[in-house]
């Protein structure tokens, strides 16, 4: 024990086998992230947690922390690139916050606020992604999917149901439901499933519960995402 590295000049202790983001969050140092979740194996796809290690960029959720590393994270250059990633996520899907039940509890929105994204900058794709309202308790709105694969990992690794998958390649990658009909109603997914609770955006919506916590009193209304360091617990509590 007591191996250390530095992130933005702050000394962080490393526990055996920790990635950079795990060690940083444990030490109370926020690194922006969307596809990372403390309870799941890293996916390394959103690239938001990219940091500079010894002058080279790498995803902090897939890079093991090593003694003596010099890591830069909260720099104008990295935050500019993170904002660009967020802008691309916003134009790729249909992210209309005023009509989204998850507004205020959304990590994508909160991270965009934190990085001062004033517009999505690029041309919008306006894709056509029909919703799946077949399930009695859960609405799936694919318009907001950012392909973080958390529902895929949760359903496979925790719920043991393997109900979701990412299908297609490149720009055509999309989330699918693992049922012959392709409809959520034809799976055994239920409200207690981890997969239903981990979505960082507004794809999985509990029917009849959308506004239990009013706009203005939600997780990221209270404080910005960076002030939580890792907002996972606060979001999980709100989603119950």
């Amino acid at each position: 024990m007591s191996a250390n590295f530095t992130i933005d000049g702050k000394t962080v202790a490393i526990a055996e086998g920790q990635t950079i983001i795990q060690a940083a969050l444990a030490a109370g140092v926020y690194i922006p992230h969307l596809c990372y979740h403390p309870e799941f194996k890293p996916h390394g796809s959103c690239k938001l947690c990219t940091v500079k290690v010894g002058g080279r960029q790498s995803a902090s959720c897939t890079t093991l922390a090593q003694a003596g590393m010099v890591v830069e994270s909260d720099t104008p250059a990295l935050n500019d690139e993170r904002r660009t990633l967020i802008e691309m996520l916003f134009v790729e899907g249909n992210h209309f916050c005023p009509s989204c039940e998850r507004s205020g509890d959304c990590k994508l929105q909160a991270t965009a606020y934190d990085l001062s994204m004033m517009s999505a900058h690029f041309d919008h794709f306006f894709p056509n992604r029909p919703v799946d309202a077949s399930h009695p308790d859960v609405l799936l709105d694919f318009n907001r999917c950012i392909l973080c694969s958390l529902c895929v990992r949760a359903s496979r690794d925790v719920d043991g149901k393997n109900a979701f998958a990412l299908c297609g390649r490149g720009i055509k990658t999309h989330l699918i439901v693992n049922a012959k009909s392709g409809r959520l109603a034809d799976t055994d997914v239920g409200l207690q499933d981890k997969a239903v609770q981990v979505c960082p955006v507004g794809v999985f919506l509990r029917k009849d519960k959308g506004f239990n916590v009013p706009i203005g009193k939600r997780v990221f209304d209270l404080k910005p995402v960076s002030a939580y360091v890792d907002a996972t617990a606060a979001l999980a509590k709100e989603q119950q």
């Binding site: 916003f90 249909n94 992210h95 209309f96 005023p98 009509s99 517009s119 999505a120 306006f126 992604r129």
Partner: peptide, 18 residues
């Protein structure tokens, strides 16, 4: 200056885009 959701991402009227 673009002010508001509609000016910035199409907003409510853009819900017809699909």
């Amino acid at each position: 200056i673009a002010i508001g959701a509609c000016a910035i991402n199409g907003g409510l009227p853009a819900q017809r885009n699909h």
